[in-house]
């Protein structure tokens, strides 16, 4: 398969793939970097793709693998660790603003592995069905449901921990057990 054919196959799913990378990486810059990195590898390995109709899942798997490799690298871990500074975002009680919501999710998803994060992003943002995820990850639907549930539970417990700390903080400073929007302080 030549390069022109590669670009022809990519064009219809370009926006979707780029958006997936941005959501997976947590922000636009890192997402675009991940996308370019994945495309460079995809161009090298395109000869291994025998069935052109499988280009879409093949590219997404490659993106997930590249993301997983990145999360293992020291510079990425250091960079991901910086998002811990955004932990105040988890105290947004009702995140209706898109950017606030993303900051909150970005912080809460730091507790997930790369594959679980990819699964959750595909489910929540790309609107993939359980059946589609099962086919993509080559797992039974029951396993996919269990993994999604586990991933969300992890995020929930992470958030609960911060809610408890925040409640204590408010209790000490204001004598109020409730959490009020805009009243949050960084931990």
């Amino acid at each position: 398969m030549n390069n022109d054919r590669f670009w022809t196959l990519l064009e219809p799913i370009h926006g979707q793939a780029e958006g997936f990378c941005r959501r997976l990486a947590g922000n636009r810059d890192d997402g675009d970097d991940l996308y370019q990195d994945a495309l460079l590898v995809a161009m090298r390995k395109i000869g291994q793709l025998r069935d052109e109709t499988a280009f879409h899942p093949w590219l997404f798997k490659l993106i997930i693998n590249r993301f997983r490799n990145r999360t293992r690298e020291a510079w990425w871990r250091h960079r991901a660790g910086l998002t811990a500074g955004l932990l105040e975002a988890v105290l947004i009680d009702d995140p209706r603003d898109k950017n606030e919501a993303r900051r909150l999710l970005d912080a809460a998803m730091t507790v997930l592995g790369a594959k679980d994060k990819a699964m959750l992003v595909l489910c929540e943002f790309e609107q993939w069905t359980i059946a589609e995820l099962a086919e993509f990850f080559d797992k039974p639907e029951g396993t996919i449901k269990a993994r999604l549930s586990r991933a969300r539970s992890k995020m929930r417990r992470f958030l609960e921990g911060h809610l408890v700390k925040h409640e204590r903080h408010n209790q000490l400073s204001e004598g109020d057990y409730g959490l009020q929007k805009g009243n949050a302080t960084a931990e």
Binding site: V90, P95, R96, K98, E100, A101, L105, A108, F125, R156
Partner: peptide
């Protein structure tokens, strides 16, 4: 916490 995450996913999407 679960409700906040639900809301965040909805708002982010």
């Amino acid at each position: 916490a679960a409700k906040i995450i639900d809301g965040a996913f909805k708002a982010a999407a």
